[in-house]
């Protein structure tokens, strides 16, 4: 960590919780962001249109039901730790008739894969140790 007050600008920024350029305090995730998602089209309408059309198609009933897809989305939202998606898909799962047990099992799967993904890399470590050791 940078020592407090190591420059006058940084000292002021830390004091006021600003970036020193007049920006408001850092509060990264806001409830009003998700409803504004569509505004992402402002920079490139064509790509946004393609994204939203594709996104919509992904979640339609298909070989998997919309309800199953919503549970997958909830699990992935936890894996990528996206607060917008967690809010949105927690509600969507409920409105698709899932309950806390199903939703918890979905995120346990995400957690298991994340945990397992870390742990299975232990084999890399193991092989390194095997190679380096006697």
């Amino acid at each position: 960590m940078i020592e407090r007050g190591s420059s006058p600008l940084l000292a002021r920024a830390q004091e006021a919780d600003t970036d020193g350029w007049g920006s408001p305090p850092l509060s990264y995730y806001e409830h009003h962001h998700l409803p504004r998602f569509g505004d992402i089209a402002q920079g490139n309408d064509e790509l946004a249109k393609k994204f939203f059309a594709w996104y919509g198609a992904v979640f339609k009933d298909g070989a998997l039901t919309a309800r199953e897809k919503s549970l997958i989305a909830l699990a992935v939202a936890h894996a990528v730790q996206c607060p917008y998606c967690i809010d949105a898909y927690a509600n969507d799962c409920l409105e698709k008739g899932s309950d806390l047990s199903e939703m918890t099992e979905a995120i346990q799967v995400a957690a298991a894969i994340r945990g397992g993904a870390s742990l299975v890399h232990g084999v890399q470590m193991l092989e390194h140790v095997e190679k380096a050791g006697m």
């Binding site: 009933d61 039901t65 919309a66 309800r67 509600n91 409920l94 409105e95 698709k96 008739g97 309950d99």
Partner: peptide, 15 residues
């Protein structure tokens, strides 16, 4: 069925 909380009822046919 009706939701056990402040959210909407699910799609009837799928559910």
């Amino acid at each position: 069925t009706n939701p056990a909380g402040a959210f909407l009822a699910p799609d009837q046919a799928a559910t």
